[in-house]
């Protein structure tokens, strides 16, 4: 683990640098940076499971939803709860906690749920496990869309205190990074990565693959849940649709683009997508070049982002980081001496 410390430092510095943009930028840029930090928590959370186990999960948006709503039940001001969610249990209706308490509740609820559903998922391998996570997402989405008393169903839940600021979001991103780092370079993380490379060999070496996958699944669910809590308290509004396919595919795209196999990939991918998206957003509202007026092109961002992703993946199929960790230039040789085997997942 000690050899990897420079990676952690580089990534923390990167997060702080982006965070500084928010401090000195316009109010809009501040919002974009906070949004990127929340996405980063999601993507780091995803990478704890996907990066180490090699199993793609389409289901983590469900944990963001579970975290966001279970936190909202407690963080909503009591007067608003009585108007919007009057059928919540009495003890919930009479309790109000702050954002930190909400985040803890959200993370624990999601972790418990993940521990239950995870038992089923980790018994499967490869694409079967991925499809199972997708099925799980559909189940949670349907239940939440119809559980009027808990989520207001297809309507949205408003009134969440807007408490996610730049400091909170940056802190959460660094916390997620540290958790992911400690797991990845622990012996359990390394064992799980071994199973990613060759499941049969890992099992033959006595690695408890299913148990380790479950551990990674639970930790990653808790981290993603915290992102869901932050998202809700950033916008002040929760709708079930916020945590469905778009959420899933955008966060997966960030991870794949950065490089699924490394933690650096999660960070680089998230910031790259956020940066490109913001530049395209500015361009899409029209600009002038050499006296030539380029008209507004709504939708440019979506198309542009897709093309950029395609180009990056053409040039670097393993993601921007090529599946390696960022490290100090003079240490690069030793850190990257480990050969990268043919990858089945990315």
């Amino acid at each position: 683990m000690r050899a990897a410390i420079p990676t952690l430092v580089i990534l923390v510095v990167m997060i702080l640098a982006v965070s500084l943009l928010g401090v000195f930028g316009s109010p809009l840029l501040l919002r974009v940076v906070i949004g990127a930090m929340i996405n980063l928590v999601v993507v780091i959370g995803l990478s704890i499971f996907i990066g180490n186990s090699g199993i793609l999960s389409f289901g983590h948006a469900s944990f963001a939803a579970i975290g966001a709503y279970s936190a909202a039940w407690f963080t909503l001001p009591i007067t608003m709860k009585k108007i919007f969610l009057p059928s919540l249990p009495a003890f919930v209706l009479s309790t109000q906690v702050g954002l930190a308490g909400g985040a803890a509740i959200g993370a624990v609820t999601a972790a418990i749920t993940a521990a239950v559903i995870g038992v089923v998922i980790v018994r499967l391998s490869g694409i079967a496990a991925s499809i199972a996570t997708l099925a799980w997402l559909a189940i949670v989405h349907s239940v939440f869309s119809n559980a009027e008393a808990l989520t207001k169903g297809t309507s949205s839940l408003v009134g969440l205190p807007i408490e996610t600021n730049l400091f909170v979001a940056t802190f959460a991103a660094i916390l997620a990074l540290v958790v992911a780092f400690l797991f990845r370079f622990s012996r359990y993380g390394l064992m799980l990565q071994a199973s990613r490379e060759d499941e049969a060999a890992a099992l033959a070496s006595g690695i408890p693959v299913r148990q380790l996958r479950l551990v990674a699944f639970v930790i990653s669910a808790a981290v993603v849940a915290i992102a869901g809590v932050l998202k809700g308290h950033f916008l002040g509004i929760l709708a079930v649709g916020q945590f469905y396919l778009e959420f899933t595919f955008l966060s997966l795209a960030m991870l794949v683009l950065g490089g699924m196999r490394s933690l650096s990939g999660a960070v680089v991918g998230t910031f790259a997508v956020a940066g490109i998206a913001e530049i395209l957003r500015i361009l899409s509202s029209g600009f002038e070049i050499f006296g030539l007026e380029v008209v507004a092109m709504p939708g440019l961002r979506e198309i542009g982002l897709a093309i950029m992703m395609l180009l990056i993946l053409l040039v670097r199929p393993m993601g921007i980081t090529n599946g390696r960790e960022l490290t100090l230039p003079w240490k690069r040789k030793t850190a990257n001496e480990l050969p990268i085997t043919n990858d089945r997942t990315g």
Partner: peptide
């Protein structure tokens, strides 16, 4: 400012 039919972008557009 374009909200891109996305609630989060809506808040950015308002900002």
């Amino acid at each position: 400012a374009d909200t891109k039919s996305d609630p989060g972008e809506g808040a950015n557009a308002a900002t």
